[in-house]
Structure formats: C-alpha cells, structure tokens
Design a protein around this nucleic acid. Structure first.
Length: 628
DNA sequence: GATCAACGCGCG
DNA sequence: AAAGCGCGCGTTGATC
C-alpha cells in the first residue's frame, strides 16, 4: 500500500506521473500499419474532448512488440478493455487499449495477437476506470494484473457520490468535456471493427489516466489505498464464485411453499377472497373497515397516512385471530420472494456457483455492499445458511470480530471503562448490566444481560428512551418501561462518561464543520449528503465506517497470508469472514485467519493491541450454518 | 412494458 | 414533532 506509481527502474515517481499527459493540441495522426488515421473526421468523439490522443490499432505481433517496448518505460499506463459482454466466464476481451503519458494509445486486438505477448504490461502499474471489471477479465485471460488505480473509487472519494457514475459523467465533471459513449454497446465481436470503435476504445484509456492524474492528489490516501488494494481480492472472490447447494435449496423452497399455502388458507377465513395480504394498502383498508374505532387509536401510520401493516405494528394488536396466520404468511412470502426462485436464478450457467457483485465505496459508511444476489442478508435459518457450502472435499472456516463496533466506539472515544473491560477480557454486556441494575457483575441475571445488550447497541447510535424500550421488547424480548429505559440510558452514560462526551463532541463537530470522518480518513460531507440524518450519522459513520475499514484491511492482507495453504476466501459480511480449505490444513488456515484478522484490526487501531486476546472467534465446519 | 416511490423486511 | 444506523431487494400501485 502507498507505493505510488513505480518507474520502470523500480523507484517512486509520483511527481513525474502527475505531469502526464500534456494535452495534445494537435489532432495527431498516427497512421499505423494499416494506414488508419485518427481521428478519422473532425466530428468523431475524439475531437469532442478537445484533445486528441494518437490512437494506433495494433493487430500484428511485430508491431505489438515495438509498441510494448515503449510502453514498458512508462511509470503508469492507462488501460481499458472492450469485451464481447459483461461476464468474464462467458465473454472475451476483444481490445486492450493502453495509453502512454505522451497521449499515444495502442489499441491491441486480442483476437489477432497472442495474449501472452502483452503479459509484460503487468510490470507497470495501471490506471483503469472500473478495477474489478478489468481485473476479472484480464485474470480470466491469464494476465497477472499489476497494482491498479481505480478511477471509479477516486471519483467516489472526491465527489462524495456513492451511486455508480459512468466514465462519461466523470469526464464531463472533472475534465469539463463531453465524452460520447455511443460505441460502448457496439458489436465488439465484429470481424472488422470500425474506425469509430477503435477511436472510442483508445479514448477511454486516455481519459482514464488523465482522471487518475487529476483526482489522486485530492483523495484521503489511506482509505483510498485500502480500497484499491481490496479490489482484486473481492474480484478474485467474484470470479471464483460461491458454491451453493441448489438442490437442497429447491427442496427447502418447496417446504416454504407448502407452509405459505397453508397459512394463506387460514388467512382467507378472516380476510375473505378479495383482499391481497401482500398488499399493504389493501390490508390497511381491511383493518380500517374491520376494527373498532378505539383499536385504531394510536395505530402507527405510514408517511402517506395509512395504517402501517408491518409486523411490529401488527403485533401490538395480538388479540386479533387474524394475526398469527398473517404474520406466518408474511414471513413465508418474504422468504419465497427474496430467497426462493429468484435467489436460485443467480446460479451461473457454466460454473454452477453464485457470483455476487461486491462493491467498495458505494455506501455512506464505507461498508462493502453486495448484489445479485445480496449474500449479506440471507436469513439466519440453519437450513438456509447450511446451503452455503465449500467445494467438494473441503471444509468451511468462519470467523467473526467479537463486538467490533463497541470496541471501535471504545477506541474512538478512549473511554476508560470500556477499554478496561475489553483489555481485561471482561464481558461488556455484563458490565453494563451490572451498572444499570446496580448489582455486582457476578450477580447479573441472563435477563439483565440481554437487556444490557439492547442498551449497549442502541446507545452507539443515539437511541432515545422510547426507541430503547421498543427495541428491547421487539428485538430482545425484554419488557422495559419508558422510565426504566431513560434510567438505563442515564446509568449507561454515567458508566461510560468518555463515550458520552465523545458522542456530544461528534454531534457538535458535525454541526460546525458539516462533515465527519472515519479512522482512515473517509470523509462524509453533510452538505452533499443532506441534512436529515446529521445527528445519528455523526456517530454512526465513524463507528460503522472504521469497523468496515478493519475488515477491508484484513481482506487486503489475506492473499499473502494464505500463500502456500489451501485457504481461499469464500465470503465476507461486515464483521465476518468465511474461507474454504482442505481438511488437511484447515486448522492451520483457521489460525492464519485469526492472526490476519487481528493484524487487520491493528492496521486501523494500532493502539488496540491489548484487546486482541478475544477479538476474533474462529470455527471450522461443513457449511456456513456450522461455523457461525 | 418500463420505471419510480413507498413500504416492508432480511442481515450486520 | 420525533425518529438508532447501514445496506439490497421484493411487491404493490401509480405513472408514463
């Protein structure tokens, strides 16, 4: 991390790198071997950005070697690939565009050139737009991909925009020029590519390296270096895919369907044939019609004014005979709609695995997010978690950080009582329970400890007495009056005074400076993000975000730590990591995982050394259900 | 038919 | 006025 761009000689050359490339005022013509000239006409997209890279289409080995020799002298290369589709398992790279600092672009045609010829390119670091995409395609094609600069990540850090922004949008904003994406979805499998296609391919690489040059000095360097180093780790995981027991999943879904159908029959006894229980508005209407006025008083309403029909609101009216079948139906509908056939439809045609997309930097806090499918939120039913399996003949190794967010809060606030408890290996929930209930830690009952969990977690994010009483009841099954909740909060603050002070300080700074940041320097700016969440976010972003940075640091360390073992990354969810390994060295891999997770934690919180004794819990088993 | 907002709910 | 936070994704129902 933090290596900057290397020169061909191996030194660091940050200063020279960012003088690249001077805008080429001439619409330089480089005929190439085939006599193609770019831009072919003044109206092509190349002219549109106001500077014209000299694009050369390279289709012959001898020409490629010459180009390559020049490119290898560069400290950094702008690289872009054009592929026949979006799936590295099914589609192929057609063009590999590489730009040098002087604005010369070589567009290598991988359908005529042997790919090995271009392997030396990986001796030089690259700047690309979407690191994961380029990494997966090039890795699949046998390249050993060098350290990448990822312009999408740079843009997210600079713009504070978390949604995907296209290259054209970033170019428009940063370079102040339009960039045509007309050719993006053109036929990259055509035997003869058009001049416009070649020009487009070359221009993308050229603008990418310019964007990297302009954005890199503006980003918080520590968080960016961790993010970009994590890109290939997650990309490898995506490429490999997650083995999943689709056969058992199919049987489970059938069970769910049977139970759903039975609960629907029961439900019809009450609702009649015309109300769709999946429709919130129809259900709300039915409730308004069927319930006495006095029951409706105080029923929570949605933002648009109708009765809320979520499970928690419904539970407040447990006296209705309709309630039990309705809640059962809703539960099964959720399972079937989100984790049923739709989930199974993500089985990859050729690998037979799930290949979800992991994304860095698309969340407010800097957490990783996942989609297609979202494997961060599978239900915690044993039968479902057990579907996540290692490859045949291997075992699953699972590990999680114990109470990572509470530890992070302790470290950020330097709260002496919290730190002391963790350093002595004590149970923080028990300590809180003892303080709130006014008893010795040894005399804390299980119920008191459970209530304390609600207090500890709710407190991190500024939960008030009402919220605490509610979550204590609904999440932890602990009855708590508003007064008891208020008292618990008071005692909590008295027990952990530095934490309380830190929270006030965070809120104050957020108001004054309009921004907060994580330990590694991810900044969130309230003027950009909006006002509504300021109070809660002032504490939540540093805590949740710094915890996310811990996991990313661990991910970055993993490949090297696992070298020479059978260990492979299988999954990661915020504070949890799953690896697969051969039974022969599973115990060794488990220990390496534990040590690496501690090292990742210390990367972010070097002052936390004393609390690493019970920081990580590791388990070996047959599937996800067995290792959690 | 495609897209969007609102709501609800799975997880950490 | 008061509200713990962060996600992705399902359905409904409105809209074009």
């Amino acid at each position: 991390m933090g290596e900057g761009f290397r020169t061909a000689a191996g030194g660091t050359a940050m200063s020279t790198v960012f003088q690249l490339p001077p805008v080429c005022a001439d619409s330089g013509v480089d005929p190439g071997r085939h006599g193609r000239q770019f831009p072919p006409t003044p109206d092509t997209p190349v002219a549109g950005v106001g500077w014209a890279p000299r694009v050369r289409y390279v289709t012959e080995a001898e020409d490629a070697r010459k180009k390559l020799a020049k490119l290898l002298e560069e400290p950094v290369l702008g690289v872009d690939v054009e592929t026949t589709g979006l799936d590295p398992h099914q589609h192929r790279i057609r063009l590999l565009s590489v730009v040098a600092r002087d604005g010369r672009v070589a567009v290598f045609d991988l359908w005529t050139l042997p790919p090995e010829l271009l392997h030396p390119l990986s001796q030089v670091p690259w700047a690309v737009f979407n690191g994961s995409f380029e990494y997966r395609f090039l890795t699949q094609a046998g390249f050993s991909v060098p350290p990448l600069h990822d312009v999408q990540l740079l843009d997210r850090l600079v713009s504070h925009k978390m949604r995907d922004r296209t290259l054209a949008v970033v170019v428009d904003e940063v370079l102040g020029r339009p960039l045509s994406k007309e050719q993006q979805t053109s036929d990259w499998a055509a035997p003869q590519l058009t001049d416009a296609q070649i020009a487009y391919a070359g221009l993308d690489a050229a603008v990418t390296v310019r964007l990297a040059e302009m954005l890199l000095p503006k980003v918080p360097r520590r968080v960016y270096d961790v993010w970009r180093a994590a890109v290939p780790v997650l990309a490898d995981l995506e490429l490999r895919g997650m083995p999943f027991d689709f056969a058992a999943h199919g049987r489970l879904v059938e069970e769910w369907q049977g139970e759903r159908d039975r609960s629907l029959e029961d439900l019809r006894q009450h609702l009649g044939p015309d109300v769709n229980p999946s429709s919130g508005s129809q259900l709300a209407e039915w409730l308004e019609r069927s319930l006495p006025k006095r029951s409706l008083k105080g029923w929570p309403r949605t933002a648009t004014g109708r009765l809320k029909t979520d499970a928690k609101s419904l539970e407040l009216f447990a006296n209705l005979p309709l309630l039990e079948p309705l809640l059962r139906f809703k539960k099964l509908e959720k399972l079937l709609s989100t984790y049923g056939d739709g989930f199974a439809s993500h089985r990859h045609v050729t690998t037979g695995c799930l290949h979800p997309s992991f994304r860095i930097g698309q969340t407010l806090s800097g957490r990783v997010s996942v989609s297609s499918p979202n494997v961060q939120n599978p239900p915690r039913l044993e039968a479902f978690r057990a579907l996540f399996v290692p490859p045949p003949g291997q075992v699953m190794i699972g590990a999680d950080y114990s109470q990572i967010e509470l530890r992070v809060a302790a470290l950020l606030s330097e709260d002496r009582n919290m730190l002391g408890a963790y350093e002595r290996g004590e149970d923080l929930h028990r300590l809180t329970a003892a303080s709130v209930a006014g008893v010795a830690p040894g005399d804390v009952t299980p119920e008191q400890r459970t209530a304390a969990k609600a207090v500890n977690f709710g407190n991190l994010y500024g939960q008030g007495p009402d919220g605490l009483a509610k979550t204590a009841r609904l999440t932890y099954g602990v009855e708590m009056t508003r007064e008891e909740a208020a008292n618990a909060l008071h005692r909590f603050h008295a027990t952990y005074p530095e934490l309380a002070a830190w929270k006030r300080q965070q809120a104050g700074w957020a108001l004054q400076f309009r921004q907060v940041s994580t330990r590694l320097g991810l900044v969130r700016d309230f003027d950009v993000q909006g006002e509504g969440y300021l109070k809660g976010e002032a504490c939540n972003i540093p805590i949740q975000g710094s915890a996310a940075e811990v996991l990313l640091c661990t991910l970055v360390r993993l490949p090297k730590a696992l070298e020479g073992t059978s260990g492979q990354l299988y999954h990661n969810v915020h504070d949890e990591l799953l690896l697969t390994a051969h039974p022969d060295d599973a115990e060794r891999v488990a220990e390496i995982l534990r040590e690496t997770m501690i090292a990742g934690f210390l990367d972010v919180f070097p002052e936390g050394e004393a609390m690493t004794g019970d920081l990580v819990k590791v388990h070996v088993g047959a599937n996800w259900a067995e290792v959690h």
